[in-house]
């Protein structure tokens, strides 16, 4: 029983980690605490519905459609809302992300109707027994793809020259501008990546559940994940995502489904009280 719960917790947690990673990429690059990240997840699920059910694209093309669509939307949000507001107080920008999420929800419900839709993909959806556990292939695929995406991003960020320029821009916009980095382009790229990672999460969450704007709540689990893991930390976001997934599954199985949120936010509160910089975050060091 416990093994079963841990398996689904870790699988779901991997998706949360992926969404949280997207959140941190945006936060590091542009200092925006993005409350619309949950709706980005929903957008990913609806991009999948559009590509597979409405347009009837073959699966590989549908994946391309989702990734390109999400990346373009991320750039659009940056160009239309974030860039014009850069330099404004943090609170104004946070309000804009909240407004954006509400508008996106309304827009989606206008376009697609309020009812949920099922999403079917050619991904394996059966299950098999392994060491006494019933392993759902969809959960396994979701976790594997999430880890692949996280790994790919980590390698890109750490080892490529564009990744280096992104890290430089995230360190200091002014210093990066002086060093000749196209900071605007780096920020746009960060929003594209952040949106895309959320959308990939949405593709799987939409399939594990039902595609509706209610997925936003699940997408927003990225927020406690990031705070628990450490706001500016990429490994922290992933660890936070896994923890949130495991706690959610343990609480819903052993206490009650509704208690999951209570437990997650209780942990968040404890972390904020005793280790406000998060598990893997760093205390603000020598920021001048």
């Amino acid at each position: 029983m416990l093994g079963q719960v841990l398996f689904s917790g870790l699988a779901l947690g991997s998706i949360y980690g992926l969404v949280a990673l997207g959140f941190v990429v945006i936060l590091k690059a542009t200092d925006v605490f993005n409350f619309a990240q949950g709706m980005f997840v929903v957008c990913g699920a609806y991009l999948a519905v559009t590509a597979l059910s409405l347009l009837g694209l073959p699966f590989p093309l549908a994946i391309l459609f989702i990734i390109l669509g999400a990346a373009l939307m991320g750039m659009g949000v940056h160009a239309a809302l974030i860039r014009p507001l850069s330099g404004r107080p943090i609170l104004s920008i946070i309000m804009v992300t909240i407004a954006l999420s509400i508008v996106m929800r309304a827009g989606i419900e206008i376009l697609y109707g309020p009812a949920g839709r099922t999403l079917s993909t050619p991904l394996p959806s059966g299950g098999f027994l392994f060491a006494g556990l019933r392993i759902s292939q969809l959960h396994l695929t979701a976790a594997a793809v999430s880890w692949l995406c996280m790994l790919a991003f980590g390698l890109f960020f750490r080892f490529t020259s564009v990744g280096l320029l992104m890290r430089a821009a995230a360190d200091s916009h002014e210093a990066a501008t002086i060093a000749g980095v196209k900071v605007d382009a780096m920020n746009r790229l960060a929003w594209a990546i952040g949106f895309t990672l959320a959308a990939i999460g949405g593709l799987f969450l939409g399939q594990l559940q039902i595609v509706s704007t209610e997925l936003e709540t699940i997408g927003l689990l990225a927020l406690p994940a990031v705070v628990i893991g450490g706001m500016q930390s990429i490994p922290g976001a992933i660890l936070g995502g896994l923890l949130v997934g495991v706690i959610e599954q343990l609480a819903s199985t052993y206490i009650s489904p509704k208690s999951a949120d209570v437990m997650i936010y209780a942990l968040l509160l404890v972390i904020l009280l005793v280790r406000p910089w998060g598990l893997l975050g760093q205390k603000a060091i020598n920021r001048v």
């Binding site: 020259s161 280096l164 320029l165 890290r167 430089a168 360190d171 200091s172 002014e174 210093a175 990066a176 002086i178 060093a179 000749g180 980095v181 060091i285 020598n286 920021r287 001048v288």
Partner: peptide, 21 residues
């Protein structure tokens, strides 16, 4: 620049690599 503005979180090597990019 004034105040030096090195990339504090990046290594020395990465700082130079940004310049050379």
């Amino acid at each position: 620049p004034e105040g030096r503005m090195v990339f504090k979180t990046l290594s020395v090597e990465d700082n130079l690599a940004v310049g050379a990019a």
